[in-house]
Design a protein around this nucleic acid. Structure first.
Lengths: 133, 133
DNA sequence: CCGTATCCTTCCCGATACTG
DNA sequence: CAGTATCGGGAAGGATACGG
């Protein structure tokens, strides 16, 4: 089967789907895209240049073939990654961040910075909380 | 039962758990905390002042009692929200963002900004992709 | 080499019922 | 009012086998 079928998280639909949860909140909408297990790691791996499928698999330790394909398809569909097929034998496929994909750098850096400066306190808070029954 | 038991996403443990996925990546670590369905909505609802449990439930349309409690507990454990119990009858409980909680504003705003400027293009890209088989 | 198809487990989360 | 306990459906994701 080709790639006709997709889970279709359709696009416009501002407010809700099943339950009235604020799916329209812009922050939530982008978290729905990058909040999964692999997206930011792939974006990071593509950061300085393109790579082919097998190279990505090697860089992102632990990712399964299925999830790499699936996540790359999602990124391609969103216009954040460009996929180029070179019809050689055997086939060669290159993945590159688009301009939109590279524009993710700013928000991701903000997250990373927050992480670096605050996750120590978070861990300490967790331990204190867990000790206090 | 008190709040002794917790799912314990322990803290230090730099690299991995089940599979060697980059759990140590700072960006992924913070996404593991705010990437769920309700966290950013709760943080947003607490943005301009504290609120009690029932007030939060009303503000965050569609959240279940269970998820509101659970997410608030996580935020409290992480030191991002402070929980204050006033032993009146009936009991009153106030939730407030801590300093650390408020510091989330910067990264969240970066995400929101990216959303607002790019999600239109993303939607267009999706539709084009879906039309092309 | 670069995938797709299928099965199977795990875990998120909603629904519901019940307490101090 | 502000929770806790329990059940169950469904989605995410890993393992495996196969195909162009």
């Amino acid at each position: 089967m080709g790639r006709r079928h997709f889970v279709v998280t359709t696009s416009v639909e501002p407010p809700l789907r099943g339950s009235p949860y604020r799916a329209g909140c812009p922050t939530r909408r982008i978290l729905d895209r990058i909040g999964d297990r692999w997206t930011v790691l792939i974006v990071g791996a593509l950061w300085d240049g393109s790579a082919r499928f097998s190279e990505l698999r090697r860089r992102i330790e632990g990712i399964s073939q299925k999830m790499l394909t699936q996540t790359l398809r999602g990124l391609e569909r969103d216009g954040l990654v460009r996929r180029t097929v070179y019809p050689e034998v055997p086939v060669r496929v290159e993945y590159t961040l688009t301009e939109a994909g590279r524009s993710l750098r700013e928000p991701l850096r903000a997250l990373e910075e927050w992480s670096i400066t605050h996750l120590g306190d978070v861990s300490a808070s967790q331990e204190a909380y867990d000790r206090a029954d």
